[in-house]
Computed example of a mutant assay.
Amino acid sequence: MWKALSRSTAAGLLLLVSLSVLPAISYGAETTGPEQTVTMTMTEYMKLRQNARQLSKVQQQEAEKWNLLSASQKQQAETLNQQREEIENSQKEIAETRQSLERANSLLKKANESLESQKKSYQKLTEETESELRRKNHEIVVAKRQRDAWAIGAGLIGIFGIVRAASG
């Protein structure tokens, strides 16, 4: 800020500040003497007045900047609060989703266990069925052999009986 001011402006500002401090210093003193007056030339007064106006403009500009910054800060605070709320809502949603996924995972594990159990039952049933089919097939084969053996035996006995009756 000081670099932007010219030397004469800075000098005028310094003069203004020093003059504004004098009444405060003299006010605190316990003298009851006459008031002091400062005399200056018209050009010095005009410079002082111009410097005061420039200082007033600078103060107005700084006040405007301050207001802008204050408004911006309020807006940023509101934005921050909104973002904070969004984060909290997102965290809640994530927690709910996590719980939902855990429940789904638990159900999936139970379904897999049930599927494994059913698979084992199916394999056992298949093995028992195949074993029963083999046993039944074996019984059928044995029954056919017995039938064929009886048929051959009966045929041989019949032939033996005919041969014996013809011979005798």
Rank of each mutant, 00 (worst) to 15 (best):
N89D: 13
T43K: 08
S90M: 05
L115N: 11
I159T: 12
L107H: 12
M46R: 10
P23I: 01
T37P: 02
S72D: 12
E78R: 03
T126G: 03
R145N: 08
L5F: 14
A10Q: 15
E116Y: 03
A154M: 03
Q83W: 03
A63E: 13
Y27W: 05
V141H: 09
Q99V: 03
Q50P: 06
G168F: 13
K124I: 10
S100Q: 15
L13M: 12
L5P: 08
G158F: 01
E62W: 07
S114A: 13
A52Q: 09
K144Y: 11
E64Q: 05
T31P: 01
A52M: 12
K47P: 01
L133P: 00
L48Q: 02
A95K: 07
V58S: 07
Q73C: 04
Q75A: 05
I140W: 06
R134P: 00
N51H: 12
N81Q: 13
D148G: 02
V58M: 10
K120M: 13
E132F: 00
Q83C: 02
G12H: 01
L14I: 06
M1G: 15
Q123G: 03
A77K: 02
R84A: 10
Y122G: 04
Q60H: 08
N51I: 07
Q61A: 09
L115H: 09
E64G: 00
G33Y: 04
I94L: 09
L133D: 08
K120C: 11
E62T: 11
T43A: 11
L19D: 14
N112T: 13
S100V: 04
L5W: 15
Q82M: 06
E62N: 08
A24Q: 15
I152N: 07
S90E: 14
N89I: 03
S56M: 05
A10T: 11
Q54P: 01
L16F: 01
M46K: 08
H138Y: 11
T126R: 11
A10R: 12
S72N: 10
S26P: 00
V21W: 11
R98G: 07
S114C: 06
K109P: 05
A29G: 11
E127I: 05
V163N: 09
V163Y: 05
I140A: 06
S26H: 10
S8W: 04
F160Q: 12
V142W: 02
S20T: 10
T97R: 06
G153C: 00
K65V: 08
K120F: 11
I25T: 09
T43E: 14
N51Y: 08
